[in-house]
Design a protein around this nucleic acid. Sequence first.
DNA 1: CTATGTGCAAACTATTTGCCGTCTG
DNA 2: CAGACGGCAAATAGTTTGCACATAG
Lengths: 127, 127
Amino acid sequence: MSVIQDSMLAILRENPGHFTAEQLLAMLRRTHHRASPATVYRNLDIFTREGKIRRVALADSPKFFEGNLTPHDHAVCLHCGQVTDLIALKGLSELVAGNIQGELISTDLTVNYICNDCAGKTGGEYH
Amino acid sequence: MSVIQDSMLAILRENPGHFTAEQLLAMLRRTHHRASPATVYRNLDIFTREGKIRRVALADSPKFFEGNLTPHDHAVCLHCGQVTDLIALKGLSELVAGNIQGELISTDLTVNYICNDCAGKTGGEYH
DNA sequence: CTATGTGCAAACTATTTGCCGTCTG
DNA sequence: CAGACGGCAAATAGTTTGCACATAG
């Protein structure tokens, strides 16, 4: 585990939230001026495979990465785009397990909603 | 609504399953030899906004499109990559609605699992 | 006729790869 | 020193845009 890999993991663990590879590169460059996209993508890939971080796909944006490994789901506001964590829905795995033919590994739930900040403020346009 | 748009919708409605933009272009070209990616992406975008089709994002692949608008979820086998539809989990919306601060619009659930065809056959490698 | 849709080529954005030099054990 | 890792530049995948022509209403 190299110095730069340590930094990347630290960034993901110390910053709650969801970051694109590009944002992570910018954060990494605060301490490692010459870091390159290749390094970021390579390491994000490794960490994801090793289960050290989680990769999240949303319908209308590039992929996000997060260091929060406790099981949880995501809510994305269709108006402002803000992504917030949801505590894991109790009973979801059980609900799912009864409906598939095979071995359940994990579930990814994304909730599309209009957050309270955006409700009312909106002329009806979605993000 | 143009001829080519009709064809695209017909393709999505007549073929159950999940297709990337590229696959749809190939299918479209069986009848419209000179169709271009631009047209496919433009129209997929329009149809998605109009709610005529659904766009699905998975963590490890390009986006998929489907014509099946009945509420349902997706299960993706981590070994072979096959995506299958799941009937909508009963009670999910209610479960979610109690956990968000805002107006629930929709939920996207992806189940990661190992399908029965792959169970046993696998040396442990994930897709 | 007017608005909308299309093909084509070029531009982008996101991501991956090859190559070679550097660091770590 | 050997193997893992990082920088850089080029390559690739996926998607979007500008523009001039074609088509539908």
